[in-house]
Computed example of a mutant assay.
Amino acid sequence: MGLFVRILLFTFALLWLSGCAYKAQEAPAGSWQAQKTTLTKLQQWQLSARLGIITADERGSLSLFWRQNSDDYRMNLTNVVGKRVFDLTRSQGLVVITDSEGQLHQATNARELVFRLTGWDLPVEQLSYWIKGLPGEADQVEYDTDGRPKTIVAHGWRLRYLGYTRIDGLWLPSRIDLTHDDTTLRLAINQWELKP
């Protein structure tokens, strides 16, 4: 075999190997990894869900409505008969909760305000991206066979993603369990609505 042929074969082998390495790093079309950028940019959405809350002292089931608009959001919780538990809004950094009696409470930290009023430790600030299946940069993540988050450990919470659904071409969570100390949250999302 001539030197030119050997060089040519060697060059083709290098190109083939580099092509394989490049393709191996690409996410499969339609996979969660391929859609991560789209999910990150998704700033306007809303959902309705059932939220189960289990603590050392109580157990309850609530209806959750969440509307996200960039950094601002509205989270409304009602009980099984439709009575408001609380309505939480964040606008321009100010958090306001309207309680079941119609009283207004203000703060800059949603999690602390919810805990003070209800005794529930809800990771409100993190939920806006966890609920989309997006881990934070410092979160510990385990992925499923399709490359989607399976578990996330962060801020003292452990999340288990128990189901996904395809909405407008995106994989979004449909069931999430969250645990922290003696608090367990079970979220079953009934409906997603995405806005460009």
Score class of each variant (00 low, 15 high):
2 G>D: 13
3 L>V: 09
4 F>Q: 15
6 R>W: 07
8 L>M: 12
9 L>Y: 08
15 L>Q: 10
17 L>W: 14
20 C>P: 00
22 Y>L: 15
23 K>I: 05
23 K>P: 01
24 A>D: 10
25 Q>H: 09
29 A>R: 05
31 S>G: 03
36 K>I: 04
36 K>N: 11
39 L>Y: 09
40 T>C: 11
43 Q>D: 13
43 Q>T: 12
48 S>C: 08
48 S>R: 09
48 S>E: 12
49 A>V: 07
49 A>P: 06
50 R>P: 03
53 I>S: 02
56 A>Q: 14
57 D>S: 13
59 R>G: 13
61 S>G: 12
62 L>N: 00
67 R>A: 12
67 R>K: 15
67 R>I: 06
73 Y>W: 07
81 V>C: 06
82 G>Y: 06
85 V>G: 00
85 V>R: 01
86 F>N: 00
88 L>Q: 02
90 R>Q: 12
91 S>P: 00
92 Q>V: 07
93 G>F: 07
95 V>K: 07
96 V>I: 15
103 Q>E: 11
105 H>R: 07
110 A>H: 04
110 A>V: 03
110 A>F: 07
111 R>T: 15
112 E>K: 12
115 F>T: 09
117 L>I: 07
120 W>P: 03
120 W>N: 06
121 D>M: 12
125 E>V: 03
126 Q>C: 06
129 Y>E: 08
129 Y>D: 10
131 I>A: 03
134 L>F: 02
142 E>V: 12
143 Y>I: 00
143 Y>S: 01
145 T>D: 11
146 D>S: 11
146 D>C: 04
148 R>Y: 06
148 R>T: 01
150 K>Q: 15
151 T>N: 08
155 H>R: 10
156 G>N: 05
157 W>F: 00
160 R>V: 12
160 R>T: 14
161 Y>Q: 06
167 I>Y: 06
168 D>S: 13
169 G>T: 07
171 W>S: 03
172 L>M: 10
172 L>E: 02
173 P>C: 08
181 D>K: 11
183 T>I: 14
186 R>T: 04
187 L>Y: 02
190 N>E: 14
192 W>G: 01
